[in-house]
């Protein structure tokens, strides 16, 4: 029903270049290869976020620690090579990500259970339970590194 790589909000795309859908396994290997990853956590991630909270990766909670756009502006100045996002309002994150998509080399990866076209890489649309399982697996594979 969900159409795994149709933007969750179907109008969220930007015409030509849309995120590549990736599996948990690939996501894990991206984190593994990353020199300086960052995880940006929003307020709407639900249960899935619980499995990421004690992950040993630099984290920013938005908006509490920083406004999302300020984070994005900061990312273009710092040397993060991989930035992951989860739990941010869908259309807001998708729109904000276009800044990084066009004006920076930082790789972006979204870990929500909804396909977000303006990231470089995104999980596909998933049902909630499936998404939680995916995040658990992501966590487990990272722990096993």
């Amino acid at each position: 029903m969900l159409g795994r790589n149709i933007p969750y909000q179907p109008t969220a795309g930007t015409n030509l270049h849309h995120a590549e859908v990736i599996s948990t396994k690939i996501a894990v290997s991206m984190v593994k290869r990353s020199r300086r990853p960052l995880l940006v956590i929003g307020e709407y991630g639900g249960e899935a976020v619980r499995y990421l909270e004690d992950l040993n990766i630099e984290k920013i909670y938005t908006p509490r620690d920083m406004n999302l756009l300020s984070i994005i502006k900061m990312i273009t100045r710092e040397d993060y090579d991989l930035v992951m996002f989860i739990g941010i309002t869908y259309y807001y994150l998708n729109q904000a990500l276009t800044h990084l998509k066009h004006f920076s080399d930082t790789i972006t990866l979204t870990l929500d259970g909804k396909y977000i076209p303006n990231a470089h890489y995104s999980f596909p649309n998933m049902e909630e339970g499936e998404h939680i399982e995916a995040i658990k697996r992501f966590r487990m594979l990272l722990d096993n590194l």
Partner: peptide, 9 residues
Amino acid sequence: PFYMPICDM
């Protein structure tokens, strides 16, 4: 100015 293009084209 901080831009967020809505379209690639």
